[in-house]
Design a binder for these strands. Structure first.
Length: 723
DNA sequence: ATAAAACGATTTTTT
DNA sequence: ATCGTTTTAT
């Protein structure tokens, strides 16, 4: 057999990993070292060379996108479809198991999947139902508690006997939440994992079946697994089926949501016969960029140890720009973007601007709009999380299942049909007293005189409408069902009547939902045996959809550092490198947190292929207030100076540009004017470049000989004017 | 039932 | 500052 297509294009380390024997393997794959390639070629190697059936492989990823990409690459390499191969996310695969074994798992056949928004609303309802004050017991906190317990494999029953009053209250909420999920047949994300793990552990014959089936377990982004995910993998693997885990401890950036970097370190302890491979040759970045990354990450303790190298060129030095404020930072970046595309051969979509937090995108957007630079911001609300989409899906859900109280609550007065708070409070009380669902309570109430006649009338019409809707959509194609719903519910008309951009996009989104329903792949084996509408709803929960429709214009890419993981760009700006912002103020006390911030910076740096630009602002507006004298991030200092050049175009000026436009006179004349030579006790001598404001808030920009340009508040700065 | 005002939070995000 | 949520007033 000719193995050239599978092994020919691999380097030594990659080839060793791909052709590893049937023992547990841990591949420490540095940024840009061909991590996905190794995984894909390993699968191809097993199937084509080792003659392992694709049916006996289980490949797990974190995102749907990664799963889809991996499948596509495998099929491309093998040159044929591999339908029987299980590739999916932890959640997707768990879901599939639970659908197949719903009875053994103790679920309802038609259990629904709650996304985190659904879950939050349910937790909130539970808290209120227990008579607790939801400002004292924030639903988000309770949800976090429940999820983190589940991620540790702990049920409410496992938590009895806690002393702490606070904790006991949370456990009470957890208990009630579990009961409600049980009653309504709802399963949240963490539950998918925990429940499928419990299924395997409790039903020996099912476990035996899957251990017999999956002879090889492959995992991507292993450093991001949490406690239960690792447990889940080990359970599938048992004693005989080797785990092939690929990851990079230096790119672990999700500790705050439960990822256990220790998993990667414990792998060798858990699997005594494990082989460890290191991929250190980088195919992405210049030597300079890699040196910067290596130096930075060298400041972390307890690493697995790894040093990236390349056969490529040295490349340009890393550039550092000290901006006066966030506007200046954005202007500088915009200038550099313009320069990049000026020669006409370079594209904007090979440029990324990476920031620590989403709020930072705003200033860049403003500047890009004013300079007509096309850009795209990643992140934000996903398609299936948008209110109008959730509304439409709630109609679908309620039509299929009138007992779904959350959906009932959501749409009973959306669009407005005269059913207000008062009516709903009465109805809720009534339903609780009768131990019935809102739907049944409403049906009952409309027959009695519980509600005011006007409300009863409106409610009756709503019930009638929902019944008609259910009859009308029955038997239709999914696409037609959705189409009918958005029209008959009045949602389309409701948003159509509003004006403004937002309303327009809501209408478009609703129409897009019809398209999504049309394109939804019902034949996918994941949804085998399910009703189309139910399958579509699961799809909506499990795959929230991209933020924006595919806009393949040539756009500058704006995103958080987290969102950039796995991507690469010719030119990368890592912006906002200030102490307190990146690393964030919250992370600075705890060493573990700080190391994760450093890894995040490492991820950012290693996204760059050709040129890396770092920026920070000496002054920045945050939460309305301005902060001055920001220190540059410690991460900047952790990059050797010889790899960097400082760019300060403005500071090059000996004299200010516009001394004519601003008078430079302040309310209480201090003698400080644009162009004045001044002395500062800390920063030394400099020239006043610009001024802003008046009176006590007057600020001046001073270009210091040694410190560069800074904005100072005149009343605090105590400047001495020199002759 | 709707509009205005007060309140509060505010790293990162996938499933 | 700004955005989303909740309370209060009309």
């Amino acid at each position: 057999m000719d193995v050239t297509p599978i092994l020919g294009c691999l380097n030594g380390a990659q080839r060793e990993a791909v052709t590893a024997g049937n023992v547990p393997a841990l591949v420490i794959a540095g940024a840009g070292s061909g991590k996905t390639r190794v995984l894909v070629h390993r699968i191809a190697w097993l199937c084509d060379v080792q003659s392992v059936s694709p049916y006996s492989l289980l490949a797990v990823t974190f995102t749907n996108k990664a799963a889809a990409e991996m499948r596509a690459r495998i099929e491309h390499l093998l040159n044929h479809a591999v339908g029987g191969l299980w590739i999916g996310t932890f959640h997707g695969i768990s879901h599939r198991l639970l659908r197949a074994h719903w009875q053994e798992a103790g679920l309802k056949e038609n259990f629904q999947v709650l996304d985190s928004g659904d879950q939050l609303r349910l937790v909130k309802r539970i808290i209120q139902g227990l008579g607790l004050d939801d400002s004292k017991w924030p639903p988000k906190l309770a949800r976090g508690f429940i999820n983190s317990q589940k991620e540790e494999g702990l049920r409410a029953a496992d938590l009895q006997g806690r002393e702490d009053q606070n904790e006991r209250q949370l456990i009470r909420i957890y208990t009630a939440y579990e009961q409600e999920c049980e009653r309504t047949g709802s399963v949240d994300f963490a539950e998918l994992l925990l429940r499928s793990l419990e299924l395997l552990l409790k039903k020996a014959e099912i476990l035996a079946h899957y251990r017999e089936k999956f002879r090889h377990i492959l995992v991507d982004e292993f450093q991001d697994t949490n406690a239960i995910q690792y447990q889940w993998l080990k359970t599938f693997a048992g004693e005989d089926n080797p785990v092939f885990a690929v990851g990079d401890d230096d790119q672990s950036i999700y500790g705050w949501r439960g990822a256990r970097i220790e998993n990667i370190r414990n792998f060798e302890r858990d699997y005594k016969n494990a082989q460890v491979f290191r991929l250190e040759q980088n195919y992405r970045s210049t030597n300079t960029i890699l040196s910067a990354a290596n130096s930075l990450i060298g400041n972390n303790a307890g690493r697995m140890g790894k040093k990236l190298w390349t056969e490529g060129s040295e490349g340009e030095p890393v550039q550092l720009y000290a901006a006066f404020n966030e506007q200046d930072e954005a202007r500088y970046v915009a200038d550099r973007v313009q320069q990049w595309v000026e020669d006409g051969t370079k594209r904007r979509d090979e440029i990324a601007i990476l920031y620590r937090s989403n709020v930072q995108s705003r200033v860049f957007e403003e500047v890009f709009i004013s300079q007509s630079i096309p850009y795209r911001v990643y992140g934000g609300l996903r398609f299936f999380e948008r209110a109008e989409i959730r509304d439409a899906l709630a109609y679908l859900r309620l039509a299929k299942n009138p007992d779904d109280d959350p959906s009932f609550e959501r749409i009973v007065n959306t669009p407005p049909r005269g059913i207000g708070q008062r009516t709903m409070t009465q109805l809720r009380d009534f339903a609780r007293a009768r131990q019935s669902t809102l739907w049944n309570a409403a049906a009952e109430a409309s027959r009695t005189d519980l509600l005011a006649s006007r409300s009863a009338n409106a409610m009756g019409k709503f019930l009638q409408f929902m019944q008609n809707l259910e009859e009308d959509i029955r038997g239709l194609e999914l696409e037609e069902q959705v189409d009918l719903i958005i029209q008959m519910s009045g949602l389309l008309e409701h948003h159509g009547r509003e004006n403004g951009e937002k309303a327009k996009s809501r209408v478009e989104n609703l129409q897009e939902l019809v398209t999504a329903a049309r394109d939804f792949d019902l034949k996918n084996e994941l949804y085998a045996g399910m009703q189309p509408a139910d399958a579509f709803l699961v799809h909506a929960a499990l795959e929230a959809g991209e933020g924006q429709g595919a806009q393949w214009e040539d756009c500058v890419q704006l995103m958080t550092l987290h969102a950039a993981k796995g991507l690469e760009f010719a030119l990368v700006f890592v912006v906002g490198l200030e102490e307190g912002l990146f690393p964030t103020g919250m992370s600075m006390e705890e060493p573990g947190r700080l190391e994760e911030e450093r890894r995040l910076c490492y991820v950012g740096i290693t996204r760059a292929c050709q040129q890396l630009v770092l920026t920070y602002a000496e002054s920045r507006r945050r939460y309305g207030a301005e902060s001055y004298y920001n220190s540059p991030s410690r991460f900047i200092n952790e990059i050797p100076a010889e790899l960097m050049t400082e760019v300060r175009p403005r500071a090059m000026l000996a004299k200010p540009v516009h001394s004519g436009t601003k008078a430079g006179l302040f309310a209480k004349d201090t003698g400080v004017r644009i162009g004045s030579n001044v002395n500062h006790s800390k920063f030394g001598k400099g020239v006043v470049m610009d001024c802003e404001g008046a009176g006590s808030s007057a600020r001046v920009q001073v270009n210091f000989e040694t410190e560069g340009c800074k904005w100072l508040v005149l009343s605090y700065a105590n400047l001495d004017v020199l002759a």
